[in-house]
């Protein structure tokens, strides 16, 4: 793919074995830079909400007794038995004008008009959160699960309030879980083009959509390869940062 990214686009199909930096130059075009910017922005927003929901969820899940842990785990795993694409179409039914959500909200007199949620930015963010949240929950869960609670007792014993003990002890001790959760959600979020396509209705163009477009319609394999290379570089940088910050090579909850 790296090789392909330096080649010239073919006249009708494929590519020519002629070395060029043209593909990467094209990426500096504001159009593409803007797409990268939008993708990163969407990912950051999504990951932000995923942290906000996922950390407390994983935390409290790990503090339940075994029976409830199993039940919650089952509920989290349940959707994975269906294809992600099909589940997204489920969201379409929920979000669309006069869809399930609108009907419920109107029936409860919370809103008067249909919200027109489908094909909006918010719908895409919601879809992202939905698709990636389990990864955050599970990695936070596994780090909180491993937590030695006698450390919190010790902190309390030494004069720390509950909240103080949480942010001086529990939070730093479970930070690796949170960070690996960020890696596990941020990296795939850059490539989840179908979420933007199905719930955003082509109004929101992300890097993944561009790659898909260039390959299926644009017939520009080298340019698509160049974008992919950039995406991979970003992934590598994210992982590198993770290792720097978390001081570990393991991704919590994965291996």
């Amino acid at each position: 793919m790296v090789y392909l990214s330096f080649m010239t686009r073919g006249d009708i199909w494929g590519f020519k074995n002629i070395f060029t930096l043209e593909n990467y130059k094209t990426l500096l075009d504001p159009f593409y830079l803007n797409i990268f910017y939008n993708s990163i922005k969407l990912s950051v927003i999504s990951v932000f909400f995923i942290i906000l929901i996922g950390y407390p969820f994983g935390y409290f899940m790990a503090k339940q007794n075994d029976k409830w842990k199993k039940r919650i785990m089952f509920l989290i795993m349940l959707p994975f038995w269906t294809s992600g694409l099909i589940r997204l179409y489920g969201w379409v039914i929920v979000f669309r004008s006069n869809g399930t959500l609108d009907k419920i909200l109107m029936a409860l007199n919370i809103t008067e008009k249909p919200l027109k949620l489908l094909y909006s930015y918010n719908a895409v963010v919601l879809g992202m959160i939905y698709a990636l949240l389990p990864f955050m929950i599970l990695s936070v869960y596994s780090s909180v699960e491993k937590m030695d609670w006698s450390l919190v007792d010790a902190a309390r014993d030494l004069g720390a309030s509950k909240w103080r003990a949480f942010y001086t002890i529990t939070f730093p001790m479970t930070l690796s879980g949170l960070l690996s959760g960020i890696v596990l959600t941020f990296v795939p979020s850059m490539g989840l083009f179908f979420v933007a396509e199905i719930l955003g209705g082509n109004k929101i163009v992300l890097v993944g959509n561009v790659i898909q477009d260039l390959l299926s319609r644009g017939n520009n394999q080298p340019l698509a390869a160049a974008i992919s290379v950039i995406l991979m570089l970003m992934t590598i940088i994210t992982l590198f940062l993770y290792r720097k910050i978390a001081k570990t090579k393991k991704l919590e909850g994965l291996y």
């Binding site: 006698s150 450390l151 309390r156």
Partner: peptide
Amino acid sequence: IPAENRNVNTVFQSYALFPH
């Protein structure tokens, strides 16, 4: 009175030192 306001301190069985 909660632990943090008692001025009673414990050495725990597993030491419970803060590893970070």
